[in-house]
Design a protein around this nucleic acid. Structure first.
Ligand SMILES: [Mn+2]
Ligand SMILES: [Mn+2]
Ligand SMILES: [Mn+2]
Ligand SMILES: [Mn+2]
Lengths: 219, 219
DNA sequence: AATAATTTTTAGATTAACCTAAAAAATAAA
DNA sequence: TTTATTTTTTAGGTTAATCTAAAAATTATT
């Protein structure tokens, strides 16, 4: 069955919201991420349900069907593989690739995706540390902690980010924080929950709680 | 000003038709290439004229404006660069890339296009021998002859094809005809205008007039 | 020059994706 | 357990891109 860019984006958003919870996804939550109005979402959910890609009963929220999940994962796979391509082959920085990948993820050609995967050396994660679903649509579960949840005196390693926005990623770059960075937590301040941390054995600096929430680490 | 995929495709088609003639382009000619109805074309031409991308007066046909020409060439540039990428880097055959490039040509990022160009080594032509417009939108004019117009006993070199269709390109591949092939014309038959030709010094074979019309050569 | 054939445009509908405003249902608070 | 608040859906419209059928303009043919 034919699928539009818009439908693909809805499925992707529902998938993203479903990763954070086992509950049904609300119309408003979808509306916010899709940057549209709840009324438009209701229309679309009815259509997606008719196509068999979501389970939806009015007022009850929505979940992806098995088929919808498969489609969503194939788009995530394409998005992340293209991001690797843009950084590794085209020389973009990690804060420049998300918008372009938002376009490239809709290119339709299984052959191309698999050739691209091979060309890139079958990467396991994208430039932001997010796992790349394989050909069969299996997404390895990488269970990382948020830096904001780590206790004083611990050492950990930066494994990913919880946000793709350019301003956030550029800030990390300024702080000399990139994937693989070693973090030694000196102190967590009670007042503002800011973290005093040494990055790659350099002199420690302060990182706000807001930033720490969006940094994923392995202890 | 924002532009849709559909508008881009119309500009591309008008550009393609303009290459073959200096006359104004007819509504029907656009309709045929766009695989749509004349009534739809009329609507779109009015819209493109309002946006300043074409000059159009009803019943008088259409031409690209300078700005429209620039947009059309930027799409052609992307299409052909992506085709080079697909063949040179992804390992596709020349008959497999057109459809995918039809999608990729709409990806919007000047930065990406120019990085891709550099990554590919600033290619001058695409896998079908068509010239690639440069960053400034200048399209080198490659003046080749159609094989069907060449006289007996001439030797020439295959420089391009006048058609992107998979069936045609696959046939050429079967005939051992690829870019750069050396052609020695033994005889042009009066009856069906078929050509008896030796390809890369092999034993001569027959090529139909229909095929010869779509082969571009340098004498 | 008049008539016939062809091409192009207009008129009126349809579909996908969106919107605002109002109604209905679900949830929270008194 | 009513009442108030919030969430979600419905009703009715808009815009872009398409369509068919009919009208108008252009071009070709007697
Ligand atoms: Mn991204
Ligand atoms: Mn990413
Ligand atoms: Mn092509
Ligand atoms: Mn080509």
């Amino acid at each position: 069955m034919a699928i539009s860019f818009t439908e693909e984006n809805y499925l992707k958003v529902i998938h993203r919201l479903s990763e954070a919870t086992t509950e049904d996804i609300s119309t408003n939550a979808v509306a916010e991420l899709m940057q549209t109005k709840a009324a438009s979402v209701t229309d679309m959910l009815r259509k997606l349900a008719e196509k068999g890609w979501v389970n939806y009963q009015k007022y009850q929220g929505v979940r992806l069907s098995a088929e919808g999940e498969k489609i969503a994962l194939s788009i995530v796979r394409k998005h992340r593989l293209w991001e690797v391509f843009l950084v590794d082959k085209m020389g973009f920085n990690w804060d420049e690739v998300h918008e372009i990948a938002e376009q490239l993820e809709h290119i339709e050609s299984d052959q191309l995706v698999n050739k691209l995967d091979e060309y890139l050396g079958f990467p396991k994660t994208d430039p932001h540390g997010d796992p790349i679903p394989n050909k069969e649509g299996i997404l390895p579960e990488l269970a990382y902690s948020h830096l904001s949840d780590i206790k004083t005196a611990k050492t950990c390693k930066l494994m990913g980010v919880a946000q793709d926005s350019a301003v956030f990623l550029q800030l990390l770059t300024k702080l000399n924080l990139s994937l693989g960075a070693k973090l030694d937590i000196q102190e967590v301040n009670e007042f503002d929950r800011s973290i005093f941390v040494s990055i790659n054995d350099a002199a420690p600096i302060f990182i706000s709680h807001e930033v720490a929430k969006n940094i994923l680490v392995k202890v």
